[in-house]
Amino acid sequence: MLDLLLKGAVLVVGGLFALLGNGVIRWLLRRIDKAAAPPSDDDLQQTRRNLGLVAAQRELPGGRWVGILERIAIYACLVAGFPEGIAIVLAVKGLGRYADLKTTSASGTSRKGELFIIGTFASVLWAALWAGLALGAVRLW
């Protein structure tokens, strides 16, 4: 019985780490956003702010919560042995954001599609990492 409780605790802790990936994903997106323009030119910085992460956050509200739910669902699918569920999660996310991603910003261009894809890949990889570690630890028992 204790063995089962400890394995369950490992899976719960892995799920919590998968859930708490926002900081890592946002750090990655900020690094990518900084690489979009050289920091020395004020005009380029303003353009970067208009087309980059700041604008994407404004035009795609709720992204943080979508990412949290996405990571929980992907972690649960992998731990439950249902990797096909990842396709369902990503399809729902993509279809739900399609209209927002299809439209352009007021300036006529936007990087929100690019940032959406990068954030989604990073989020999936983060959840898969913790699912793999948790399952590996449980199977080593």
Rank of each mutant, 00 (worst) to 15 (best):
L101C: 13
R71T: 06
R31V: 10
V92S: 08
G52T: 01
L28Y: 03
V54S: 12
A35I: 06
L6N: 07
V138A: 11
A137I: 13
A127H: 01
V66T: 12
L44F: 12
G14Y: 00
P38W: 07
V124Y: 00
S110A: 15
I72Y: 03
S40D: 15
A35C: 08
P61G: 08
P61T: 10
T109Q: 15
A73Q: 08
D41M: 13
L51D: 11
A36R: 14
L44K: 15
L16P: 03
G21M: 02
T103N: 14
L53E: 04
L5G: 04
G113M: 02
L29K: 02
L115Q: 13
I32R: 12
A131P: 06
D33H: 02
A134K: 01
R71L: 01
V124T: 14
G94E: 11
S40T: 15
L11F: 02
E59K: 06
L135E: 10
I118Q: 09
I72D: 06
S40W: 10
G14A: 05
V138H: 06
S105Q: 11
R49C: 09
E84Y: 02
V12H: 03
A87C: 08
G15L: 00
V10H: 04
F121P: 03
G8W: 01
A106F: 03
R64S: 11
S40H: 14
V12G: 06
G132E: 05
L133F: 11
R71S: 07
L20D: 08
I86F: 05
A9N: 04
R64T: 12
L5M: 12
D43R: 15
W126F: 12
I72P: 05
T104I: 11
R31T: 11
F116M: 07
V79Y: 00
K112V: 08
D41W: 02
F121R: 07
G52K: 00
G136M: 03
R26L: 11
Q45G: 12
D33W: 00
G119V: 00
A56R: 04
Y75I: 01
L11S: 05
K34L: 14
L4H: 07
N22K: 04
G21F: 00
S110G: 13
R30F: 07
V13W: 01
L29N: 08
R26G: 05
G85V: 00
A9Q: 04
S107R: 10
A76G: 12
L2W: 04
A36V: 12
L2R: 09
R48L: 10
I25P: 03
L11I: 08
G8R: 03
